[in-house]
Amino acid sequence: MKVLRDSWLMFKSQFNVSRRNPVWLFIGMFQPICYLLLFAPLLKNLVGMPGFPRGGAYNIFTPGLMVMMAIFGVGFAGFGIIGRLRSGFIERMRVTPVSRLAMILGTLGVDICLFLVQLVLLVGVGLLLGFRPDPGGLALLALLLILSGMAMACFSYALALLFKDESGLAASINLVVLPLLLLSGTMLPLSFAPETLRNIAKANPFAYAVDASRALVAGNPGDSSVVKAFVILGVLAIITTFWATRSMRQAAM
């Protein structure tokens, strides 16, 4: 099928680019590892307090960090698109019959692979510190995180194609990412939050991802939060992929 073939070609090209500039892999890693080493220990004293979810500090905090990586790390994926707009690569591709969906999917594939490598490293560090996830739950969580990463990456691509320059993209992503993160319950569980904040958080798709991630790590795949998160993030991933593809179709420098 043409879309698959084209996606594979675009994937290989983007992979060459990322492989030759691996610094992004580590920039994306830096923040979550810092949180794991420098912030998670603070939570230890909160375990057992009223409102704190059951489970160890690392079992509560690590899944949240994984969602945070989907928001923060992948959120800046659009910078790759800006680079390719600048070099004229995207314009060159748009004169060819290459599938526009494939242009998005190829790049997305590489960004998701990078994200998965980062997740593996994060889980490795977490295990050393005392993170004890349910294995089956962790596998399902990986799927949920891929959907979250897709949604965030495509959102970032679409903004990149809209603004076409680094400063516009950085400003708009930062504007979105910080509230998404704070209202997701990654840092502290939303069960600590006042009711107004909790209500606002209901509009944040990543809050559902964080809830589900904790349930999955604890070995409760049947929890209602899990189904909700898969549906919400799945739909979001599809919508943002189409949005990014549509922007790619119309992209003009």
Partner: peptide, 25 residues
């Protein structure tokens, strides 16, 4: 089409760029 900026991917070799272009067609 050869645009003013050309549009080769700077982080790939000339040959890699050519191969991608051929395969796309």
């Amino acid at each position: 089409y050869v645009s003013q900026s050309g549009g080769a991917e700077p982080a790939e070799t000339g040959r890699e760029n050519l191969l991608l272009q051929g395969r796309i067609y």
